[in-house]
Lab assay of single mutants.
Amino acid sequence: MASQGTKRSYEQMETDGERQNATEIRASVGKMIGGIGRFYIQMCTELKLSDYEGRLIQNSLTIERMVLSAFDERRNKYLEEHPSAGKDPKKTGGPIYRRVNGKWMRELILYDKEEIRRIWRQANNGDDATAGLTHMMIWHSNLNDATYQRTRALVRTGMDPRMCSLMQGSTLPRRSGAAGAAVKGVGTMVMELVRMIKRGINDRNFWRGENGRKTRIAYERMCNILKGKFQTAAQKAMMDQVRESRNPGNAEFEDLTFLARSALILRGSVAHKSCLPACVYGPAVASGYDFEREGYSLVGIDPFRLLQNSQVYSLIRPNENPAHKSQLVWMACHSAAFEDLRVLSFIKGTKVLPRGKLSTRGVQIASNENMETMESSTLELRSRYWAIRTRSGGNTNQQRASAGQISIQPTFSVQRNLPFDRTTIMAAFNGNTEGRTSDMRTEIIRMMESARPEDVSFQGRGVFELSDEKAASPIVPSFDMSNEGSYFFGDNAEEYDN
């Protein structure tokens, strides 16, 4: 783990906690998980779902989305002020799938948001429990990260689609708070800032007046979040320049895209947490497990152990491969979309394939898809080993990566060399080191050039047997250095459309 220093740990961010010791953190995270579980059980009762239907990941996603929508204050306010045809701002819903006479049927349900809020609060001892809501947002974000390569979004903001390893959390809503900021990748933060800068260039009043003052505060806050992700002084200094700019424009845009590229080699610290679907927490609570009393951590053995003992089902389209669908969801559960496939294969105990080789589309089923041909199958979400999630980018030494994705962002704290394609990355730096950030740029390029592919990161860190909950005997895996390590390699994943 990167030293926490003055930073709060993510469990504290996750639970809005002030400084807590490890036991208190485990208890408050457990409380959050228990609340999600209780809410899910109650919703299944309301909807009269069978046990099997309640364990269907598509039903879980609909129920999670309903509660997130019920608590989305800004959108609710907007919907009330701008009524649109056929949208009731006070209601929320989605597809629920039921097994009827041996076939899967889709039923569109509609609930009062007020009623959903009441059920959620009741499951969370009367609190709004925003930490639990954020947790579900991060699960949705991790699922998107594993399912889609955001080529269009990258290109629109002047970045290269091969930089997708920097895009963790790119679909997280803005209201996801400190826990959300911690899991956002460098590219995601750059993209958010670039969008602001572009608006400022096109709209003279963007930075002016009372609204402009708020915009400015948001801009500086985002700059500080991004600065905190960088691990070298030169990158941090460049972020200070971007933040202090009187009138952010093209120079800042250039600096930010430069920094994003540099992060492929001088990786930023991005938190990883295993956020599971509500249909995993519900049955665990129903079986009598007391998360608050037992304590829970999002970055240790607990999620692995929970998945070892969970039964989750998914709808499967006619030509999809259930094992591939399982891999997709497994990666999402562990926030591992940008991790090295060699490491993932070792931990999972079966070969993890790149996205383009998977015969599976996303987990969600569109409303126009034919239910007649839908089957369902068990998702295999178990693992051979477990490993500690990392909050750091690993040290800054790398190795060759593949054509589709030119770097990785480690999820697990496991000893290995970190793949990246130096030639491709360095070719993108057209040696432009003039301007006010020239000395920093020169320094950053120097550090990137001296990074050695064969150097090892996370020295001495290994994986653990599932029986080793105290992480007492690390097993340090050895990897084939020459092997392909990137998930979005030469990829044809669908595009994420909101």
Results as ranks from 00 to 15, higher is better:
2 A>F: 00
4 Q>S: 15
6 T>S: 07
12 Q>K: 06
13 M>E: 03
21 N>K: 10
30 G>T: 01
32 M>C: 04
40 Y>R: 00
44 C>F: 10
50 S>K: 00
51 D>K: 05
62 T>D: 04
64 E>H: 14
67 V>M: 13
80 E>A: 14
83 P>I: 05
89 P>A: 15
89 P>I: 11
98 R>Q: 15
110 L>F: 12
114 E>R: 02
115 E>G: 11
129 A>F: 02
142 N>P: 07
144 N>W: 04
147 T>S: 09
152 R>Q: 09
160 D>V: 07
160 D>M: 05
163 M>K: 04
166 L>G: 12
168 Q>V: 05
181 A>P: 02
183 V>N: 02
187 G>H: 02
191 M>P: 00
197 I>Q: 06
203 D>G: 09
207 W>P: 02
208 R>C: 02
209 G>S: 08
209 G>N: 12
213 R>D: 04
216 R>Y: 07
218 A>I: 14
221 R>I: 11
228 G>D: 07
241 Q>T: 05
245 S>Y: 01
246 R>Q: 09
250 N>M: 14
251 A>V: 15
254 E>T: 02
257 T>S: 10
262 S>W: 06
264 L>W: 06
265 I>G: 03
267 R>F: 05
276 L>T: 02
280 V>H: 01
283 P>C: 15
283 P>F: 01
298 L>H: 07
304 F>E: 02
313 Y>E: 04
320 E>H: 02
320 E>V: 08
328 L>G: 00
333 C>M: 15
339 E>M: 07
342 R>W: 15
343 V>L: 15
346 F>L: 07
351 K>H: 13
355 R>Q: 06
362 G>K: 07
365 I>Q: 08
371 M>L: 10
382 R>Q: 02
386 W>I: 10
388 I>H: 06
392 S>F: 13
393 G>V: 09
395 N>Q: 14
399 Q>A: 15
403 A>Q: 11
412 F>L: 12
416 R>V: 05
416 R>K: 11
416 R>L: 00
427 A>E: 10
439 D>H: 07
440 M>L: 09
440 M>D: 04
441 R>E: 09
447 M>H: 01
462 G>V: 09
472 A>D: 06
475 I>C: 14
479 F>K: 05
484 E>H: 03
496 Y>T: 01
